[in-house]
Write a protein that binds this DNA or RNA. Structure first.
Length: 478
RNA sequence: GCCGGGGUGGCCGAACGGCUCAGGCGGCUGCCUGCAGAGCAGCUAUAUGUGGGUUCAACUCCCACCCCCGGCUCCA
């Protein structure tokens, strides 16, 4: 039983259809996700994609599948658009901060995983750096060379895309069409020595006049790897020549993933990955223009600085399907946060009123099945959230314990810390004392004193709530 | 220019041929409360860019137009 829980359907970019997901090896999934270029902070648009991938992984695991999840760290090889300088992004970052490229890479790699953790994104099974795999890349390029797919011009070793029969299949365009389109729309100058517009660099030579911080010896000359080779090489190294899922942002379809496929299939003749999944962009309302002009990005830290729980952003992402654009505004983030906090409050209320008996009604199973069916239908998280709210509002047909258990089950996929308000730390003694004094004041109908103490506690970050069952407190969220 | 994706109530967003066109947020009313908060109950909104067409039936399919966003070798 590879998949004991149910059938999973995923939208495959290769076929532009939802397909039944069948892993190559029963019960196991090998998945590769394109990781960050660590020259700068990842912004919340980047993180929407990582959240989508995290949800994908969690859904697979929820189905009882064992997921081997590989992600690269790009720490070399991304050129800036200004071809004249020939610098790569890492070197630009280093110059800006007067550090070495290696320091820059370490720093932003660390920051990336800190932010990912704040969004409850699981760490990949394997994280691999491009610069740790230079020799693997060189031997891969050699294989391409042996098979006659490469040629050398002034600035590097290139892949000849005309040699591959179905180049561009991911874009649903063939080689000729792609070439025409790219010629027509090029914003950036092409190296005129390239044989085809779609040809791309495998190994780039260091500039003659200057020493790069990152460069390596190779059979073709000192230089550094091209833009796409790392993912192909590392993906195949850790997951095999043919693995299950490859994902990334939608922008990777026409070039990065297209070229990954080209390189891999030129060597192996096998499909690199069986399912290609792509997340849509986070876009910004008219009032906000982010990204592009570097420096004006919204990071996870920005959200925190604005007083938000990072998981409110995760909730926001879950309200939209991963293949639809999502409009980010501070207002929508706020409404996501309100919803999230309310949900946690419900969970807390349930947790404090659990029945002792643990019997399971048919309704319990019904909810569980519905949830599974929804998430297995191409990760329909908006529907899963709607079901969650229906469950929360469900009257007497389920016990609190059943509801609570279901919510905890759902949260394995949502990862919204729905139980965050449940197990609160103890209050400091002085706060306990204040609460006791307030209760006395309330008994004596001394509202002025009671309200004053409540204010006092609020200043300490403790919110009091009077309920029919007595006074209750919680730590102010943030 | 070419390619791709869209335009759904005050906001964010599901649905994608028919079953009341989800859900959340916001707003309102009531219950509860000393008050507040939380919760509960209910309400809210002439909602599907415009004009045609197909159909017994369209948000959903077709055509045209308008507008928006993304990609086109830096970009999740």
């Amino acid at each position: 039983m590879g998949n004991p829980k149910g059938e999973i359907y995923l939208f495959n970019t290769l076929t532009r259809r939802k397909e039944r997901f069948v892993p190559i090896e029963k019960g196991k999934v090998r998945m590769y996700c394109c990781g960050p270029t660590v020259y700068w902070y990842a912004h919340i648009g980047n993180f929407r994609t990582y959240i989508f991938e995290d949800v994908l992984r969690r859904v697979l695991e929820f189905n009882g599948l064992e997921v081997k999840h590989v992600m690269n760290i790009t720490d070399v090889g991304h050129l800036t658009s200004d071809a004249d300088t020939g610098e790569d992004k890492m070197e630009v970052g280093a110059k800006r901060e007067r550090k070495t490229v290696w320091e820059i890479a370490d720093f932003y790699t660390g920051k990336f995983f800190e932010d990912a953790e704040r969004l409850n994104i699981l760490k990949p099974t394997i994280v691999c750096r491009a610069t740790d795999h230079i020799s693997d890349m060189i031997s891969f390029i050699k294989k391409l060379e042996e098979r006659g797919y490469t040629y050398i011009i002034d600035d590097g070793v290139y892949f000849d895309t005309s040699k591959l029969k179905n180049y561009g299949k991911l874009t649903e365009m063939d080689f000729e069409k792609l070439n025409e389109n790219l010629k027509a729309g090029a914003r950036v100058e092409f190296n005129p020595n390239k044989r085809n517009v779609t040809d791309f660099c495998l190994w780039r030579f260091s500039p003659r006049d200057r020493k790069r911080q990152m460069e390596w010896e190779s059979p073709w000359g000192v230089g550094f790897p091209g833009w796409h080779i790392e993912c192909t090489v590392m993906g195949m190294k850790y997951l095999g020549e043919n693995f299950d899922i490859h994902c990334g942002g939608i922008d990777h379809i026409p070039i990065h993933h297209t070229n990954e496929i080209a390189q891999a299939e030129a060597v192996t003749g096998k499909p690199l990955a069986n399912y290609w999944l792509h997340g849509a962009f986070l876009v910004f309302g008219k009032s906000m223009k982010m990204a592009k002009s570097a420096g004006e990005i919204i990071t996870v830290q920005t959200l925190v600085d604005e007083g938000f729980d990072p998981l409110a952003f995760r909730y926001l992402c879950l309200t939209a399907h991963y293949r639809s654009e999502l409009v980010f505004t501070w207002e929508s983030l706020k409404s996501a946060q309100n919803a999230l906090f309310t949900l946690r409050e419900h969970v807390r209320n349930l947790a404090e009123n659990l029945e002792s008996e643990k019997s399971r009604s048919p309704k319990f199973e019904e909810y569980h099945e519905k949830f599974l069916k929804i998430i297995n239908d191409d990760l329909n998280m908006p529907k899963a959230l709607a079901l969650t709210w229906t469950l929360v509002r469900e009257e007497k047909t389920l016990t609190n314990r059943e509801k609570y258990d279901l919510l905890m089950e759902f949260d394995k996929v949502f990862a919204l810390d729905l139980a965050r308000y449940v197990q609160m730390e103890r209050l400091p003694p002085e706060a306990e004392e204040l609460i006791r004094r307030r209760e006395e004041a309330r008994k004596a109908k001394d509202w002025a004193t009671a309200d004053k103490i409540r204010e006092q506690l609020k200043a300490m970050g403790i919110i009091l709530e009077d309920t029919p069952q007595g006074v209750r407190w919680r730590i102010e969220k943030r």
